[in-house]
Computed example of a mutant assay.
Amino acid sequence: MEHSVFERQGQLTDRAISPAAYNLAIGLTLLWGFAVNWWMVDNISTEWIRGINPWVFYGGYFASCMLGVSLFARSANPLKSFVGYNLVVVPFGLVVNLVVSRYDSQLVLEAIRITALVTAGMMLLGTLFPSFFSRIASALFVALLLVIVVELVEILFFGVHHGALDWIVVLIFCGYIGYDWGRANQIPRTLDNAIDSAAALYMDIIILFLRILRILGRR
């Protein structure tokens, strides 16, 4: 079994690339995912998505995401990792489509701008203080699990959602962006690792964006 991307210490078959090329590969991979999501929002109707049987939709969503994560996290092949990345991007794009359709376009653009600025800031902090984010990784994971449980209980049993949870999720994923960016710069700089790192960051950024949009929408 191959090691998870962030546990790799380099292999003889890996071809190292320059730091500039590595960061460019991460950036281009992220842009590809965001461009696909933008195209999906612009070209796929929400009525079509809502017409999908809920069991089929959610089953396909989780199956595609889990398969995608398994591919890019375990594979040392850039092409296979890119396929896995797209298996995550597409179902995320369907969810983004449903969410953004509820908000004014100017509010969506504001959420995109804020998300971009926060992401850039957390990447800078992740570069400057990688050891700090590494130390809080376990706390972030526990906090995320706790928030998921609390949200499920609130929605399923009480039919409510407290806005404070959105702020907590924003803080958690700010931490995850710093953590994943710090890890990305501590593993061997190969094309495959760049794609895998971008995939992890993509999920952090999309979830951050959706929560920021929800917070802005309550104004």
Rank of each mutant, 00 (worst) to 15 (best):
V69G: 01
A143W: 15
I205E: 02
Q106T: 07
L146V: 13
L152C: 10
R218Y: 11
R50W: 13
L165E: 03
G93P: 05
V95E: 03
S18G: 06
I148E: 12
F34G: 00
R219M: 09
S4Q: 11
W55V: 15
L94Y: 04
L201Q: 06
Y176W: 09
V90F: 13
I17H: 15
L210A: 06
F82G: 03
R50P: 01
G159P: 10
A73S: 12
M40L: 09
V153W: 12
T190M: 06
G51Y: 14
K80N: 08
L213Y: 04
N77C: 11
Y61V: 03
F157P: 01
R8T: 14
W48L: 15
G59N: 12
V95S: 06
L210K: 03
V41D: 00
N23S: 11
N77R: 08
R8W: 04
I148Q: 08
N77D: 15
T115P: 04
N37S: 07
F133Y: 15
M40K: 03
W181Q: 02
A139G: 14
L71R: 03
S131A: 14
R211Q: 12
M1C: 05
A200V: 04
F173T: 01
P188M: 07
R189F: 09
S18Q: 10
L30F: 14
E110C: 05
T13W: 10
S64E: 04
Y103G: 03
T13H: 15
L156A: 14
L71G: 08
V88R: 02
I187H: 06
V56E: 11
W55H: 11
S81R: 12
W181H: 14
R218N: 10
I207R: 05
I148R: 06
I49N: 02
S70W: 13
L124D: 00
N185Q: 14
G27L: 12
R50I: 09
S138P: 03
I44E: 04
A35L: 09
V56H: 07
L216C: 06
F141R: 15
F129C: 09
